[in-house]
Amino acid sequence: MLLSYARNKHASASDRPDGDLLVKAAVQETFFAAKVEMVVKIPDLEISSVEGVIERCFTGECRQTIPLLQQVVGLRIGSGIIKLVNNFVGGPHGCPRLADLVLECCEQVILRYTVEPLGEILSKKGNELKTAYQEFLTQNPRLINSCIAFAEGSPLREGIDAES
């Protein structure tokens, strides 16, 4: 059976010599292709520049939304970023596909800095691994109930009471 539709999305974050991050996201699909590239200032996680291009789209009107990307310059990647990006780039006057690529870039930034602490935890085995997770859980209230691994009843939550 032939595919009726295919989508390929790729995003990455790379370290720049000046310590900032260069983040890219691109999507290729049957009727749409676009790229977003942005520089994120470290340690503030502030978007310092952004560029984008819609290479292929169903209606030419989509390309008129490219200038909206500049509204994300100055935003800090942190709580509320999804709403801000959807508001400035997506929405009825914008392009939700472009907003999605900006958000994919933001996710890469977060994951880029998640790799290191996670790598430290995952270098441990057995009970030590469990203890390492529990240490993070006691330090960060946001981890509790963030997913099934840190939900009530999970072995990683043993001895950690959300009520305390």
Binding site: I42, L45, G78, Y113, T114, E116, P117, L143
Partner: peptide, 17 residues
């Protein structure tokens, strides 16, 4: 406020910045 496994303090943010 930071993220699930890291925060701004972990990114070596100085008090001045």
């Amino acid at each position: 406020r930071g993220f699930l496994l890291f925060g701004f303090a972990d990114l070596s943010m100085t008090l001045e910045s």
